[in-house]
Nucleic acid binder design. Structure first.
Length: 787
DNA sequence: CAGTGAGCGAGCTTCCGCTTGACTT
């Protein structure tokens, strides 16, 4: 007999709590939700006041039967899932599915995993909050309706297997709209003017002062510089102003993802995997949280370590308030479990992420940094414009000793220099004045992490879904994470020195970007379709407004079935109308006429992605097709660029009596000769311009490589070869690969020995993707048969 | 591996939020 059975959501949590509670308590985990709407249909009974049809999914059946068994042996069952909407629903599903009786059931909550908090919770049990459960059911059903009624429209009108949802579709919209802003952006330039003064004859000590406002154009800049010839420069005023910097709040999931991306270059999925490892080994608190709260124990631990390491004046215990919309705060902020551990064991990634979390947490409990900003105003005798020099000194470093939050602003300038001593009235000796042309820059593209930040600001998505959402919209092909090469740009610099103005033109590389999110054509088409037919759901405030209603349900002032009914009926009407009235949408755009053939040139999304087409299907001759290149988009490609695509594949010459052809295929640019392909490296060779001489050179290089690749061939069977691959020698037979046992010498294998290996080992070394795909297929087939 | 892109039209795909493995090289 078990006295007390406690059920929590996470197994790592169960382990920790079991230690706190002692022998009379058995602690188990539900591994999140144990029941959900059935996956293959809407699973909402529309005739029966939206009764949800819940099932225990296949992968949870074993767990549920284990829990059922334990429940039978237990006197009291404590449902200790998280203190939020989802947590309440988990408890309710457990209660229903495990057949619990009210008398034996206690619902308890704690939002920090400390012994005190848990014992306190045990002393204050309650029962399941039905209103909160209903708020979750409303959330669940709304998401199911949106996802499962709109997605099929996309299958019919755009392309199979696409998806739409309350969260993912808005995430795509953000990226699409940002990209259009960038396309529409027109860069303009102005001149930044900086004067450089000698302060003494040693030339060591100089002062840089700038015009506070940039000058609009080169004419006005030259005019200003003219005026500065023979002018005297005098210090008109010097003043200092104290200022302070405060530390950032401890990490939530979202801010951890942002900082790990900026400081360590991790993707959001990477960050979460590493954090999960740290959590499972007990090194950090729970990593999916929207709370910036630290437990009292944590604040105390932080104080101890700060006083010990840095001294009492660096300590400033504090609590932060959450700023994010709809935060549920069921957990603590992400922090080290034991603050005294400044570093940790594990992989280098784990070490680095731990260190980041440690610093952020400790810094949040440290004193403000005290700064002093100094400004000097400099008069110019020949004009009323004034120059300004700024300097900043750190008077007390405070939390900066440990940690400084990074920003997303790439063009931010550091301005932490100290100004040299200056006195009012002092005349300065001019060395030169530089006027540099600067360009305005378009709004930045989103990174994974900055998209998470934006979604959080809008209250869309939850800590547990940020990473999966970003991976979904990439998987569907809506967006792509890519690097962008920069462009060369010329800019003017005017220098006034020794009363002469000199003009130079310099070049810079600008606009290079790393790991940014770009929309694909399919993302643009789907987004435009959804925005035009389901504007209310794609609205950035949709989630916020339904969340308000969920809150009312949780408070008991709104009936959940009423809310869902009010949403569903007009929504479903719109769905039906859209199916009936909308055109099939492949994003077709007419670029104009091809002067050579006189036929129209179209671009659209085809079965295999975006393509250009000359002529129409109804024409007498078949239309000609060509895929768009990477980086080309349906909405921005020009007629000339599209026609260029049809110049490939092109014959560039002959070699050994056979044609050499250049083209661009699924795997990039290539040349082909005698049906043997050679890949071209992007940026090195261009299939549009490559010469026959260069092509022959590449063919010969490839031949040598192939020779080195082949270890053995056999006269008995041309399909059988022994090749040298990335992981050593292997046997290739009829497009399947086979591992050679380590006991055998690959260079001395006989035909019979090879065939023996093929028979006994079976295909093992073929690509991972093909294997997993075929497995997935067989699984779904068997499932389908069972039904 | 380097092509394809109507036509015939089965049966499949899909949501958001809770939680971890189970796979391979």
């Amino acid at each position: 007999m078990i006295e007390n059975l406690v059920i929590v959501e996470s197994p790592a949590k169960a382990q920790t709590i079991e230690k706190f509670l002692g022998k009379d308590f058995t602690v188990k985990s539900s591994y999140g939700h144990i029941r959900d709407l059935e996956k293959n249909t809407l699973s909402i009974d529309l005739e029966n006041n939206f009764k949800p049809l819940y099932i225990v999914p296949e992968d949870k059946k074993k767990l549920v039967s284990e829990l059922k068994k334990l429940v039978k042996e237990s006197k009291i069952v404590w449902l200790a899932s998280d203190e939020d909407r989802e947590g309440e629903a988990i408890s309710w599903h457990l209660y229903e599915e495990l057949g619990l009786k009210k008398e034996q059931t206690r619902r308890i909550v704690f939002n920090e995993i400390t012994k005190d908090a848990i014992l306190k919770a045990i002393k204050n049990p309650r029962f399941i909050d039905e209103n909160l459960v209903n708020a979750q059911q409303a959330r669940r059903l709304l998401d199911r309706m949106v996802g499962y009624e709109i997605s099929p429209i996309l299958w019919r009108k755009v392309r199979p297997s696409l998806s739409a949802g309350r969260v993912q579709s808005v995430a795509v919209r953000l990226i699409v709209e940002r990209e259009r802003e960038i396309t529409a952006f027109k860069s303009s330039s102005s001149y930044r003017v900086a004067a450089n003064f000698h302060l003494d004859d040693l030339k060591k000590n100089n002062l840089i002062a700038e015009l506070p406002n940039k000058i609009e154009n080169s004419e006005l800049t030259l005019k200003f510089l003219e005026k500065c010839k023979n002018a005297t420069f005098k210090v008109a005023d010097v003043f200092t102003k104290p200022s302070k910097k405060s530390p950032a709040a401890p990490f939530t999931t979202s801010t951890l993802q942002q900082e790990a991306s900026r400081k360590l270059g991790y993707s959001v999925a990477q960050t979460m995997t590493i954090a999960q490892k740290l959590y499972e080994s007990g090194k950090i608190t729970y990593m999916r949280t929207d709370s910036v709260n630290l437990s009292e124990t944590a604040v105390g631990m932080a104080k101890d370590i700060i006083v010990k390491e840095f001294g009492a004046k660096y300590s400033n215990p504090r609590q932060f308030k959450t700023k994010s919309k709809g935060a549920q705060e069921a957990h603590e902020a992400i922090r080290p479990t034991y603050m005294a551990n400044m570093e940790t064991e594990g992989s280098s990634q784990e070490k680095r992420l731990y260190e980041l979390i440690w610093k952020r947490t400790v810094a949040s409990q440290m004193s403000d940094a005290a700064l002093e900003k100094t400004t000097a105003i400099i008069d110019i005798s020949t004009t009323k414009e004034k120059l300004e020099a700024n300097g900043e000194v750190i008077k007390f470093d405070g939390f900066l000793k440990v940690y400084l939050e990074s920003t997303d602003d790439e063009n931010e300038e550091e301005n932490t220099k100290l100004l040299p001593p200056l006195s009012v009235g002092q005349v300065l000796k001019l060395r030169n004045i530089n006027a540099t042309e600067r360009f305005t820059y378009h709004p930045p593209r989103y990174t994974e992490a900055s998209l998470v930040k934006k979604l959080e600001e809008l209250g869309i998505g939850r800590p547990s879904t940020y990473a999966p959402t970003i991976s979904t919209i990439q998987q569907r092909g809506y967006i792509i994470k890519e690097d962008k090469l920069g462009n060369e740009r010329k800019f003017n610099v005017f220098i006034l020195q020794d009363n002469k103005i000199e003009e130079t033109v310099k070049t810079e590389i600008t606009g290079a970007e790393k790991s940014k999110l770009f929309p694909n054509d399919i993302g643009l088409v789907v987004n435009d379709f959804l925005v035009s037919y389901f504007q209310n759901i794609l609205d950035y405030n949709f989630t916020a407004s339904v969340e308000k209603q969920f809150d009312e349900i949780a408070e008991g002032t709104l009936k959940w079935t009423d809310m869902i009914g009010k949403f569903y009926h007009p929504f479903h009407t719109k769905v039906t109308e859209t199916i009936a009235n909308s055109e099939r949408n492949v994003g077709e755009r007419n670029l104009g006429i091809d002067t050579q053939s006189g036929k129209t040139v179209l671009v659209k999304i085809g079965r295999f992605g975006p393509m250009a087409q000359i002529g129409e299907a109804s024409d007498e001759d078949k239309p000609r097709f060509a895929s768009l290149l990477k980086g080309q988009r349906i909405d921005t490609i020009s007629l000339e660029e599209a026609l260029e695509l049809f110049k490939l594949p092109r014959i560039i010459g002959q070699f050994e009596g056979k044609d050499v052809t250049a083209g661009i295929g699924r795997f990039g640019p290539y040349i082909v000769h005698n049906s043997k392909f050679v890949s071209l490296k992007a940026g090195v060779d261009d299939p549009f311009t490559i010469s026959i001489d260069r092509a022959v050179e590449l063919i010969n290089i490839k031949r040598i490589d192939d020779q080195n690749k082949t270890i053995l061939t056999f006269s008995q069977d041309a399909d059988l070869t022994v090749l040298n691959g990335r992981w050593g020698a292997y046997i290739s037979y009829k497009k399947e690969n086979y591992k050679i046992p380590k006991t055998q010498d690959a260079t001395k294998l006989s035909y019979e020995a090879c065939m023996e290996i093929i028979k006994t080992t079976g295909s093992k070394s073929s690509g991972r993707k093909t294997i997993s795909k075929s497995k997935v297929k067989t699984i779904s087939k068997t499932k389908a048969k069972k039904k």
